[in-house]
Nucleic acid binder design. Structure first.
Lengths: 361, 361
DNA sequence: TCCAGATCGGAAAACGCTTTCCAATCACGG
DNA sequence: CCGTGATTGGAAAGCGTTTTCCGATCTGGA
């Protein structure tokens, strides 16, 4: 007798603890509507093969509203075996480059009724791996890797392993601007854009260039440098040794790299920073060193970050439709999985502004 | 006989369909380690009261690694009755104001082992409500509302209802810079910051002001305007009628508002835009209209957006530690729920730069 | 050597939902 | 009026965990 009471109370106790108190369950809705659990479920999901009588459906919906019922997404995920979660991994959400991409991903996700979760790795490859692992644990349906590193062997391999595990668990993957992983990829025309920029600048009369390159292990940075070189080569110009300074892919990195270049002393008349954020840092450095802009030194960037459209002098750059990058990445990812990873190529467009005035005349 | 075969195959079929193929289950790990399901679970969660023998624990962990096992977060959520999801709702993730806050939230969430999901409402109050509903459905543990609208009655009320439902379901809530909802709030010293800016500008010798205000229904914008007015009043100055122009809370809104002001004609010598992004738009408008900066018109903003630190002339503004706002919001939210909503006050700091040179001499 | 007490493993229930399978109900033509 | 087929409601299994309760095994003391 006592035992039985004990059992009862303890079971009750557990039930209460576990319950998200206040959230009605489908079972309760069904009871309120006077139908079975199955019918209530069908009233919501309205399968094509099995219909529920209109009046019953009405009753269920009304009961749901009355009880302020919302389906428990976790329970649905369990029963259905799939979620509607999109995981987006970026280097730094406060960097306008990534927040623009994020905006695109979220817009596209919205169209598909998906929810976006984000992780900001602060450019730490280890955290990138961690985050992918967390998303696998969440059984996210889609993983989007933005700005993945072209890192040293070990971490890069661990990322590959995690991504493979994610896919093995049934997840879809897309990456932006990488080439290592065998996944759907949106590739930015970094080489062609930078090459186009180089020839255009040459056409404007510039002959002596320097480049503020990003970290050597960052693929995007490498490609832009290589493209710029190739573009110069095409018009018979070149980038002498000592004219390339590596730096962080940030505003401060650009500032530091430009300072370094000035410190070394240079006769370049035009400097190409491999992204806009670095270019802005470079402009600040030039100003701080009393170099007149753009008369004594012209500056060009890459990306055409919207937030930076109003710097003075207005920055010559290569416009990349960043938000579209995000949109395309999600679209690639949600397509029915193919045998081979797909690729979507997006080209940049050279935009000449005041920071590189015409010198040809 | 046939029926039984049918049953078997269909059950099998369902099992296969529902399974996230490739993801090992705890059951499988347990079997591989030669222990029971319960023991395997305990090996991972290591409750204080119930321990598992070290050698068994080792076996389980090894089996898990071998099978590449990850716990299913959805199943855990069901069993535990709670998730580790944080929902963050912002107006526009591409706006540096919000991406800075997001960075802060993510940093703090990371410390607590929480995962952040984000929704960008594009300043549409209806989508804000939708997003909160989605988070309730996910049974998110924490909801953070950044830049909530001080909207018209109806939508605002619907938001209130949704938020209440979220709380009723056991969720914790924090908001940034709002006063309507009875939830934990991080309040920014908008009034005091703007007032400080006004008196400082007055001290620099400015006497004739204009304000590019945000949308009237946005609480933050109203407070900054009111604070600026109050600051002027304190030093015996005022803001005549016709010197306040409303506009969107964006770069283009600032551009439009400034254009409008110039179009009307004004003898103001200093214009205060209620945020930095608008201020930058205003500077662009001034430039396009041939007004010299800062000689003919001084400009001040609010927020001290990092990405905009390098505009020229450098922008006078009120520095708000945006990332800290996010950190504090999360901290408030994860504190054990109190009977009364808590408030964390964060003050801004006036930063004078070149856009408002000293006129007093 | 044996027993009390402590320790630890395992069966089973519970979380909230979806979906299958079967049975009951209904309309209808012969 | 009855049998047939189409339609729809409901019971139950299953998704992958956590946690309780009970029973089995071990330790050490007399």
């Amino acid at each position: 007798m006592l035992a039985s009471v004990n059992e009862w109370t303890s079971v009750r106790g557990q039930a209460q603890d576990n319950r998200q108190s206040g959230s009605a369950t489908l079972q309760e809705v069904a009871r309120a509507a006077g139908v079975s659990l199955a019918t209530a479920s069908r009233a919501f999901n309205g399968s094509a093969t099995r219909t529920v009588r209109p009046d019953l459906r009405e009753r269920v919906l009304a009961a749901a509203t009355a009880l302020n019922y919302t389906p428990n997404a976790n329970a649905q995920a369990m029963a259905r075996g799939t979620t509607n979660l999109v995981g987006l991994v970026v280097h730094d959400i406060a960097d306008p480059f990534f927040s623009a991409i994020a905006a695109g991903v979220m817009r596209a996700a919205d169209e598909h009724g998906l929810i976006v979760t984000m992780g900001s790795t602060q450019r730490d490859p280890a955290r990138e791996v961690e985050y992918v692992a967390a998303l696998r644990q969440q059984r996210a349906r889609v993983l989007i890797l933005a700005g993945s590193r072209f890192a040293d062997g070990e971490t890069s391999e661990r990322l590959g392993v995690e991504v493979a595990a994610f896919q093995a668990a049934g997840g879809q993957v897309a990456a932006i601007s990488q080439q290592k992983l065998p996944v759907n990829t949106v590739v930015v025309g970094n080489r062609s854009g930078a090459a186009g920029l180089a020839t255009t600048l040459h056409g404007l009369g510039y002959r002596s260039f320097a480049v503020l390159a990003g970290p050597p292990e960052l693929l995007t940075a490498r490609d832009r440098l290589a493209g710029f070189r190739a573009g110069l080569a095409k018009v018979g110009a070149e980038l002498p040794a000592g004219r390339v300074v590596a730096g962080e892919f940030t505003r401060d990195g650009g500032y530091a790299a430009m300072s370094e270049l000035l410190h070394r002393g240079t006769d370049a008349t035009c400097v190409f920073a491999v992204n806009d954020v670095m270019a802005v840092g470079a402009m600040a450095a030039l100003r701080d060193h009393g170099v007149r802009l753009p008369e004594e030194m012209a500056v060009a960037g890459f990306d055409d970050i919207v937030t930076l459209r109003d710097v003075t002098p207005a920055l010559t750059t290569v416009r990349v439709p960043l938000e579209d990058l995000g949109v395309w990445a999600l679209r690639l990812a949600v397509q029915p999985p193919a045998d081979k990873p797909r690729t979507q190529r997006i080209r940049g467009e050279v935009v000449i502004r005041e920071s590189t005035p015409d010198r040809s005349s």
